[in-house]
Computed example of a mutant assay.
Amino acid sequence: MHTEATTALIDVSYLPRLEFFTAIVDQQKLVLDEDAMYQKQSIFNRTNILLANKVELLSIPVYGARKKQRYKEVKIDYNQKWLQVHLRGIRSAYGKAPFFEYFFPELEEEFLKKPAFLWDLNESLLTLCLKLSRINIPIEKKSVNTEDQDILDLRELTRERAEFADRKYYQPHAYPQLFGADFVPNLSIIDLLFCEGPSVKKILELSRKKIVNNL
């Protein structure tokens, strides 16, 4: 008899998108593989926010990542002015959002700690976003046996370029955004946090695809 896994194996990406959160919202534990390799052209260091006239890609520059380099060893390049650009962009995008004043100070505080490694920044931001979303899921860091049948492998969400519509986790559930007449799906979790506050978890649950299994 098949039972649903309650532990998810994830990559920790930069301010993850809504698809990621809809996939993990009902999990009992998240596992980060400490031996994971960094993957270029992934969203480990990228996310999207909504500005007045466009969707903006925020990207963290890193020092030249090598092939077969451990994710935990990838360093952030603070010589580039990305931090000021990202914080200014987030203020510009969400400064008038209903819950901006509640959440932004804690978010800014994590950025200003300036951790040296991308993994550490992403992990701290994920932990904060889970807390602000009122999603109580513990995170464990360890070396992982990917053949473990009790772990749901969700690393495709950060490594593969497939559109969310082609995967089985996220079906957009519209909520009021600040800009534009049309709803923009699958932005960073901060879009939902700043716009909806305490309703985040409910909207994530409503955004989960309903899978019908043919038995």
Rank of each mutant, 00 (worst) to 15 (best):
K81W: 04
E4Q: 04
D26S: 09
T3I: 15
D11E: 13
L107Q: 06
K40S: 00
D33V: 13
Q39R: 08
A8R: 11
I49K: 04
F183K: 05
A5V: 02
K209I: 10
D33A: 08
D26P: 03
T47W: 06
L157V: 15
E101H: 15
Q149V: 14
Q39L: 07
R91S: 13
V31P: 00
L118T: 07
E196C: 12
H173K: 03
S133F: 03
L87E: 01
L50E: 03
E110A: 07
K72T: 01
L121W: 10
A162D: 12
I10L: 05
G95T: 08
E196L: 01
T22Q: 02
P105I: 01
L118M: 01
E163A: 13
E73H: 07
A165N: 12
I90D: 05
E196F: 01
Q177P: 01
L107M: 08
L192M: 12
F103Y: 15
L83P: 00
E101A: 12
L107I: 13
I24F: 00
L18K: 13
V12N: 08
K131Q: 12
F104W: 07
L107V: 09
E108A: 04
A52R: 03
L51R: 09
L121I: 05
D150C: 14
L206E: 11
K81H: 05
E56Q: 15
I60K: 04
I24E: 01
A97R: 06
A165I: 09
K54Q: 14
Y170N: 11
E196H: 03
E156T: 15
H86F: 02
N45A: 11
I10N: 06
R167Y: 02
I60D: 01
N213E: 14
S92V: 14
T3Q: 09
K72I: 04
R17L: 03
A165G: 07
P176H: 07
K141M: 13
R134F: 01
I190S: 08
L32F: 10
E101Q: 15
K96W: 00
T127P: 05
A174K: 10
I24V: 03
Q28Y: 05
K96Q: 04
I90R: 09
K210D: 15
K168P: 01
C195V: 09
N53S: 10
V55C: 12
V74G: 00
L204C: 02
R159F: 12
R17F: 09
T47S: 13
T146P: 07
C129A: 11
V55M: 02
E108L: 03
Y78P: 01
L58R: 10
